[in-house]
Amino acid sequence: MTTQNIYLDGVGLIGPGLTGWAQACEVLAGRQTYVAAHTAPPAVEKLPPAERRRVGAPVKLSMAIGLEAARHAGADLASLATVFSSTEADCDNCHAILEALASSDRALSPTRFHNSVHNAPSGYWGIATGSMAPSTSLSAYDATFAAGLLEATTQARSNGKPCMLLAYDTTYPEPLQHLRSIPDAMGVALVLNPHQTSAARALLKLTLRDTPATRMPQDDLEHLRQSIPVARSLPLLALLAQGRSGSVVVEYLDSLQLDIEVCSVT
């Protein structure tokens, strides 16, 4: 893979002890002590009341991080292409469907069925924003953040227009939680632009390498990085929060990782 350059215009972030990009910057820059806390379900913006009542954690989470990143970037929601990237999608809904299928009454709620598809958050995003722009939904297990970043970057560069990555994970109830242990919900959104504008916060240079992944220097943040797939993004987010140039490596394939060089823009 040759190096792919992409500008970063906006960031959205919600996770355990991280209540938005502004507060997360204080933590990741070392100006505020990290205090682990359960991720609170964010309020749902923009959706009509009927849809708002039907949505689960993935839609609430992706909507919140996406709107935060778009606001920071000053992006036009109606024309912004998106890549939704989630390791497990709607874990609560999956549990409820399997529970119903294992019962004597196998009737499924139409809402459960409707929300069972992997691209349901993308559909609700379109309803909320009125967007008719292209949208892709993908999953790549623990490499979901890196795969999503590569996909969104490739789309932005190919189309010559901004594209937003919305990467998020939620947690299963038991007994699936025992098999796929993700302790809490977390989401990261990045607005990526092939062109430098006044909104550009950094230039990212993406290259595939066979070097080890970057670890967080703080034990509690390193535990978070390892325990939630989308938290593999933390070393990148820390560089951005600190306003520093440098390189980090994020897990991708078994023998090939994603090197991200962060460069300042003038």
Rank of each mutant, 00 (worst) to 15 (best):
M1N: 10
Q4I: 04
N5G: 09
I6Y: 04
Y7R: 07
G12R: 05
L13H: 06
G17A: 10
W21M: 09
A24Q: 01
A24Y: 00
V27D: 00
V27F: 04
L28F: 03
R31Y: 06
R31V: 05
R31G: 08
Q32K: 15
T33P: 09
Y34H: 10
V35F: 07
A37M: 14
H38N: 08
A40S: 15
P42Y: 04
P42I: 06
E45A: 14
E45F: 06
P49C: 06
R52Y: 06
R54W: 05
A57N: 09
A57G: 11
A57C: 10
P58D: 03
I65G: 01
L67G: 02
E68S: 13
A69P: 09
R71T: 11
R71A: 14
G74E: 08
D76V: 10
S79R: 14
L80Q: 09
L80E: 04
A81T: 11
A81D: 10
S85M: 08
S85L: 06
S86K: 09
T87F: 03
E88S: 15
N93M: 13
C94A: 14
C94Q: 13
C94V: 13
C94E: 07
A96Y: 09
L98E: 13
L98F: 09
E99C: 07
A100G: 03
A102R: 12
S104R: 12
D105I: 02
S109W: 07
S109Y: 08
S109C: 11
P110K: 11
T111E: 11
T111M: 12
F113L: 12
N115S: 08
V117P: 04
P121T: 07
G123T: 07
G123M: 04
Y124Q: 08
W125P: 00
M132Q: 14
S135T: 14
T136F: 05
A143H: 00
A143Y: 00
F145T: 00
L150E: 02
L150F: 03
L150N: 01
E151H: 08
E151W: 04
T154N: 14
S158G: 05
N159L: 13
K161G: 05
P162K: 06
C163I: 04
M164T: 03
L165N: 01
L165C: 03
A167I: 00
D169T: 06
T170Q: 10
T171N: 15
P173H: 06
P175F: 02
L176D: 05
L179F: 10
P183L: 03
A185H: 08
A185R: 02
G187D: 01
A189M: 05
P194E: 02
T197M: 04
T197Q: 03
S198M: 08
R201T: 10
A202K: 05
L203M: 12
K205L: 07
L208S: 13
R209V: 06
P212M: 06
A213N: 10
R215P: 00
R215Q: 07
M216C: 11
M216P: 02
D219A: 15
D219N: 12
D220S: 13
L224T: 04
R225C: 07
V230W: 00
R232Y: 01
S233N: 02
A241W: 00
A241M: 03
Q242P: 01
S247W: 01
V248T: 10
V249N: 01
V249C: 10
V249M: 01
V250W: 00
Y252K: 03
L253R: 15
L253M: 14
S255C: 12
S255F: 13
E261P: 02
C263N: 09
V265D: 07
T266E: 09
